[in-house]
């Protein structure tokens, strides 16, 4: 047995972070982030563009080293047990994507091999996932030609080759049409139901409210509020999560509302996904 399997890590917490700081030059991207995310939850990380959501995810997923603070992921020390963490997490999102030149099938096989599956097991698993994600017909086409929804399904599929204990989903439905969005939401619920902790960043209030049990609102590199969506509403005296969000993050972003999710700029959608209806 590999050394990695020797310990199973914390049974209670998926993420415990204390005072995470990240500087980019003089800009303070993260200004002391504390987080405690229980295992088995879908946890939503909500904030406007540039608030620090992606930076936090990158740090917790071992992609960026923090300039200050400490964290344990699945019970393992982020500074010293990075490989143990990597063996148990998967990252899907805006930044961690797929190989555009390869077909969907080839992408899954490459990741299967890199996850330690044998050639035969990789092929079998790729077939299963393509089938489950309704991508069998597109399996032989390069990913560069996929639609946004197909790409994101494959992207999530690649993260599930070996189902992780903790799945990072960075803005999983940004730029998606409403139907694909519903499909991804259902998938997130299924993954969580199977015991995987999901840490989701989103600019969409509806998405956080729909999926996340715990929500942290981040703005200017700080957590400005944390709780369930009901708690956040109660705390701010707001009738909707949208109002609570605007109160917490100090007003609307500089974008104008639109009628609903479109393929337009993600920032437009922050205000578009109103909870009023």
């Amino acid at each position: 047995m590999s050394k990695l399997i020797g310990r199973t890590g914390s049974d209670e917490w998926a993420v415990q972070a204390h005072g995470l700081v990240k500087l980019y030059g003089k800009a303070q991207a993260l200004d002391g982030i504390d987080l405690a995310i229980p295992r088995g939850q879908v946890f939503g990380f909500l904030g406007p563009n540039g608030a620090g959501k992606t930076t936090t995810i990158r740090i917790l997923a071992t992609l960026t080293r923090p300039d200050g603070g400490s964290a344990r992921v699945l019970g393992f020390d982020l500074a010293h047990e990075r490989d143990a963490i990597r063996a148990r997490i998967a990252v899907t999102g805006q930044f961690a994507s797929l190989d555009e030149d390869l077909t969907g099938y080839e992408n899954l096989i490459v990741f299967g091999r890199l996850r330690g599956l044998s050639r035969a097991a990789s092929r079998r698993r790729a077939g299963e996932l393509l089938d489950a994600f309704d991508l069998t017909a597109a399996a032989g086409r390069p990913v560069g030609g996929y639609s946004g929804g197909m790409r994101r399904r494959l992207d999530i599929g690649a993260s599930l080759i070996v189902t992780p204990d903790l799945l990072f989903l960075d803005e999983p439905t940004t730029g998606m049409d409403p139907r694909s969005q519903l499909g991804v939401w259902q998938l997130v619920r299924d993954i969580a139901a199977a015991g995987t902790t999901v840490l989701l960043t989103t600019q969409y209030l509806a998405e956080a409210e729909e999926l996340a049990e715990g929500i942290a609102v981040i703005d200017h590199g700080r957590i400005v509020a944390e709780g369930t969506s009901a708690e956040l509403r109660a705390r701010t005296g707001a009738g909707t999560l949208q109002e609570a969000f605007l109160t917490l993050t100090g007003g609307p972003t500089d974008s104008s509302p639109t009628d609903g999710p479109t393929d337009g700029s993600p920032a437009d959608l922050v205000l578009a996904t109103s909870e009023d209806s």
């Binding site: 330690g116 489950a132 994600f133």
Partner: peptide, 23 residues
């Protein structure tokens, strides 16, 4: 079928290099 939990495993140097070469 989208869920498949195996024991925690990792690709060795040869398997990883092979996968990247194939890619």
């Amino acid at each position: 079928s989208v869920i498949s939990r195996g024991p925690v495993s990792r690709a060795g140097v040869l398997a990883a290099t092979g996968a990247f070469t194939w890619r």
